[in-house]
Design a binder for these strands. Structure first.
Length: 410
RNA sequence: GGGCAGAUACCAGAGCGGUCAAAUGGGGCAGACUGUAAAUCUGCUGGCGUGAGCCUACGAAGGUUCGAAUCCUUCUCUGCCCA
C-alpha cells in the first residue's frame, strides 16, 4: 500500500526549480556529516539530476525505523528531482558488513538473501517513489568477476588503510577474530559506487570508511568522486544500542499499527527527541507534556506507515486501554472459548493465551514465578495467584496476562 | 609447523574434587510507583514437580574417583608468541 502522505515526485527538469543553494540547505539538514558541502553544492549546480546511491544489505527480511532514516534522505533527493539508485547488496550480504560489528556475521545463503531483498524493496517503497527509483543488484557485476579482477581491485587498497578502521582495530585489540573476507567488504562497496557512477552516497555514520573507499576507487577509474553523506545512527528502543533486529529493539515498518504505537510509547524522553528529529524531521516542542509529545510522535509515525485512520485508532485505543485503564473497551486479541484446553487452570489457561494470542512460549516455571505469583494474571481485574485453581470463563471475559498482554474471550 | 594461554548460563566473569543449577555485575522478565518515560524498591532469570526430589547443563568424546565445572587423555575451536 503506497503511503498516502507522499506528494508526487518532481520530474527533471523540475517545473518549479529549487536553487542549488536552497537544495543544499534542505539536504544537509538532519545529516550527521557531509563531505563536503562545498563539493555537494558544486554537483547541485551541474544542472542535471544527480545519481544518489543508497546501498542496503538484505540480511533481514524486514526494514525497521533505523533503515528509514537514510531512505527518507534519499526520498528527499528524489523530491528535488534527483535519481535515486537503490543498491541491493545481494552479493555483499553473503559476506556481511563488518561495520560496527564486534564479531563476524553469520553467512546467509543466496536464497535467503533474494527472499529478503524482495520484501525489503517492497517496504522501501513505502518511502521511496517506486517509479523514480533505479534498483540494482551488485551480484550483477560481482558474480562476473574473475579472481584476477578481484586481485587487481585489491591491489588498490592497502592493509594499513583497512586496519585504520576502528571496528577492525577494536576487534584485534580485544582478541576477537577478524576473517580475511571481511576485509573485502569495503572494497566491494566502493566498487559498487564505480559501477553506479554515484554522485552522492548516503549511509549511516558507521559507513564513513566504506564510502570513502568508493571515492578512492572512483578516482582511480577516472570518475568524479562521490559526495559522502552520513546520516546519524538511530538508537533502538532501549535508547543505547543501535536499532537492530538482532538486539530486538526495533520498530518494523510492517509492524501492526497498535504494536508500532505501543513500541514508540515505551521510548525514553531523550530518545523521543531523537526520534522526532530523525524520523519525522521535526523538532520536539519543549512546551508539550512529554507524554503528549510522545503520543503525537507515535500517532504521526503510525499514520505514516499505515494511514491517518489507523494512527488515530491506535491512539484512541491507547487512551482507553492505558490512560483510562479501561480494558473492557479496548481492542484486544480475541480467543474463542471453544479452543481452550480441557482442564482450564490458571496455569494452563495463561500458557494457552500467551501461545495463541501472542505466539509466546512460556514455561510453566516462568508462568508461575513471573506472572501468576506476583499477580500479573488477572481475570476481569481479579488477581489469579493460584496456578492450579480451576477457571470457568464466559464470553466477554478479559484475561490480563501482563501489563502489555491481555486477551478477550468470545 | 612449534611453544604458551584459554573455552563456564543471554553477555562479562568467579569457581579449580563434594556444601555448584554454579558467586558477582550487566542485561532481560514480572510486580510496586508512574506518563507502558526516567529514577527507585522487590522478586524471578535451565526444564518438570505443590513438595521432597528428579532430569539436563560449565567446548566435544573418553577415563580416574564413592563423587568432576574442577584431575588425566585425545579431539575441536580461539587468542598470543616464535617460525
Amino acid at each position: 500500500m503506497p503511503a498516502p502522505r507522499l506528494p508526487p515526485v518532481l520530474r527533471w527538469p523540475t517545473p518549479r526549480r529549487v536553487t542549488p543553494e536552497a537544495q543544499l540547505e534542505a539536504l544537509v539538514a538532519g545529516s550527521a556529516k557531509v563531505l563536503s558541502e562545498k563539493e555537494l553544492l558544486g554537483k547541485l549546480r551541474l544542472d542535471r539530476p544527480l545519481r544518489i546511491k543508497l546501498g542496503v544489505d538484505p540480511t533481514a527480511p524486514d526494514i525497521h525505523f533505523g533503515h528509514t532514516v537514510a531512505l527518507e534522505k534519499l526520498r528527499q533527493f528524489q523530491e528535488l528531482g534527483h535519481q535515486a539508485v537503490l543498491l541491493i547488496g545481494d552479493f555483499t550480504a553473503t559476506i556481511g558488513d563488518p561495520s560496527g560489528r564486534s564479531a563476524t556475521r553469520p553467512p546467509l545463503t543466496r536464497d535467503e538473501v533474494l527472499a529478503n531483498a524482495k520484501t525489503y524493496t517492497e517496504q522501501a517503497f513505502k518511502i521511496l517513489d517506486r517509479e523514480q527509483t533505479e534498483v540494482v543488484y551488485n551480484g550483477d557485476w560481482f558474480r562476473k568477476m574473475s579472481y584476477e579482477d578481484v586481485l587487481r581491485l585489491n591491489a588498490r587498497v592497502t592493509l594499513q588503510q583497512m586496519l585504520q578502521r576502528e571496528d577492525f582495530r577494536t576487534r584485534i585489540d580485544s582478541a576477537t577474530e577478524v576473517r580475511l573476507h571481511e576485509l573485502q567488504y569495503p572494497v566491494m562497496q566502493g566498487w559498487d559506487s564505480v559501477e553506479i557512477k554515484a554522485d552522492v552516497e548516503i549511509g549511516g555514520t558507521d559507513q564513513l570508511f566504506n564510502i570513502l573507499v568508493g571515492r578512492d576507487l572512483q578516482k582511480e577509474e577516472g570518475q568524479p568522486q562521490q559526495v559522502v553523506m552520513l546520516m546519524p545512527l538511530l538508537e533502538g528502543l532501549d535508547g543505547v544500542k543501535k536499532m537492530s533486529k538482532s538486539y530486538d529493539n526495533y520498530v518494523g515498518v510492517n509492524d501492526p499499527a497498535q504494536e508500532m504505537f505501543g513500541k514508540l510509547m515505551s521510548v525514553s524522553d531523550d530518545l523521543m527527541a531523537r526520534y522526532y528529529q530523525l524520523l519525522l524531521g521535526e523538532t520536539l516542542d519543549p512546551s508539550l507534556h512529554p507524554m503528549e509529545a510522545k503520543k503525537s510522535l507515535a500517532q504521526k509515525l503510525t499514520a505514516r506507515y499505515h494511514d491517518e485512520a489507523a494512527g488515530q485508532a491506535a491512539r484512541d485505543d491507547w487512551d482507553t486501554r492505558f490512560s483510562k485503564k479501561d480494558l473492557a473497551s479496548s481492542d484486544l486479541p480475541e480467543l474463542p472459548l471453544t479452543e481452550l484446553p480441557a482442564d482450564t487452570t490458571v496455569l494452563s489457561l495463561s500458557a494457552h493465551c500467551f501461545q495463541a494470542a501472542f505466539q509466546l512460549k512460556k514455561s510453566n516455571g516462568e508462568l508461575k514465578k513471573q506472572f501468576i505469583q506476583p499477580g500479573s494474571v488477572q481475570l476481569n481485574g481479579t488477581k489469579l495467584t493460584d496456578p492450579n485453581a480451576p477457571v470457568s470463563l464466559s464470553a466477554g471475559d478479559i484475561l490480563k496476562l501482563s501489563k502489555k498482554h491481555a486477551v478477550r474471550f468470545i
